[in-house]
Design a binder for these strands. Structure first.
Lengths: 227, 227
DNA sequence: CATCTAAACGGACCTCGGTCCGGATCGTAA
DNA sequence: TTACGATCCGGACCGAGGTCCGTTTAGATG
């Protein structure tokens, strides 16, 4: 079961002259398990891309996400700075690419994995499991996720976010077809926003169990109207 | 009825050597209607502060929020760049200061204004009115609000946000004392986030009426458990 | 009014994200 | 193998945010 078209795919089209960028996630269906994304890259380009991702990961491991300077990444990868930007568009793009694997895995799990996350379980169950999964995925990528957070205008248009939203919307519609599921989905997803999770856990010191309970309770309240 | 201590007050303490900044909003009670915030500023400092805010507002009117460069503001105000930073800490601080008036007004309204926003109406009524008020306040300051959005880490620690959160939490506790009102408050506030409102209205083209209905519905669902 | 100190000022300076374009490379076709 | 065009590379360059520190000034004190 694949939705209309967005999986992850967070990179800009190859040349960026003229049209600043493909406005939203391109409509390319990807089978969920695929590791190599970029479809047709010239050999050297692909090689450099790999080097760059590798270098970025290394820098993060060493100096945290804050140490990931575009120039540093370029140097560490042994390429020029321009190359980084051509490949990933901007800093957010690079960081997002690093998160891509885990995003894809998550998608694979809730699109085609075993219940209760995947299809097979009743929608409410799936929704509950979904939140918990996102919650836990978020916490261990938290630093990166925060660093990758784009300017407010782009927050909601990113393909991977759209995928989550679509999934929640679909589930909600199965549960309560008469509600404004788009808006409810936004609300639910907002609860799972990395920035919020960061604030609650690190700044307020809440334990994960509480957030988890909070999610289940929220789902209850939001879906209780029906049935 | 004033809560423990945060109104708006978005400026850094005067000298910023040593301790990077007062970590969270300082605990200074302010009567709600006060226009001049900064308590004890040297004459020249106060004068320059006013000039800077004025200059910034002018620049926004002329070139939009994007045109508000720290250097441009400094030039327009006829002061040095360092002065801008000492006074407002950073760009976000400056932009936030511009939003301060409307933030204060809103606070005054829900803390001491007439019902249903202010005290006197039943909590659920107040909550409904609150959301609608925030919604509409957000839309006409949208550009500025987006531009002022700080990095994810600071989003939730800003005094004016804390004030909103506290208010919602208090209302929720009156409605359903057994719930995890802190978490529910976060969820409700997330629905009112400027970035989300921007996305829904401008990028998705939803009319305000729908957002408004969505808020009322959300409040219903979240509070329906009780009563 | 003279003096003194804390506070404020200003602009040179640094870093980093992002752009640009001449030159090097890949890959294909002859 | 040679030739050629599309693609990619690299690093100089630019603008903007943010820092630093020597200098100036408000305003309190005697």
């Amino acid at each position: 079961m694949l939705y209309s078209g967005f999986m992850s795919a967070s990179e800009p089209p190859f040349p960026k002259p003229q049209e600043p960028q493909e406005p939203l996630g391109g409509p390319q269906l990807l089978e969920v398990g695929s590791a190599p994304d970029e479809p047709c890259l010239r050999a050297d380009a692909a090689r450099n891309r790999a080097r760059l991702l590798d270098a970025a990961a290394r820098l993060i491991a060493e100096h945290g996400a804050a140490g990931v300077t575009m120039e540093a990444v370029a140097a560490e990868a042994g390429v020029g700075k321009g190359t980084v930007f051509r490949r990933f568009g901007d800093r957010t793009g690079l960081l997002t690419a690093l998160l891509d694997h885990s995003a894809r895995n998550l998608q694979a799990d809730f699109l085609g994995g075993p219940p209760p996350l995947g299809p097979g379980a009743p929608p409410v169950e799936r929704l509950r499991a979904f939140g918990v999964a996102v919650l836990y995925r978020a916490v261990d990528r938290l630093d990166l996720e925060l660093a990758a957070q784009p300017e407010p205008t782009r927050r909601y248009s990113h393909p991977s976010v759209q995928a989550l939203r679509t999934h929640v919307t679909v589930l909600l519609r199965q549960i309560d077809p008469d509600a404004d599921c788009d808006l409810l989905a936004q609300t639910l997803l907002a609860y799972l926003d990395p920035a919020l999770i960061n604030h609650l856990t690190r700044q307020c010191g809440m334990p994960m169990e509480r957030l988890e309970k909070g999610w289940l309770d929220l789902v209850d309240r939001v879906t209780r109207t029906v049935g």
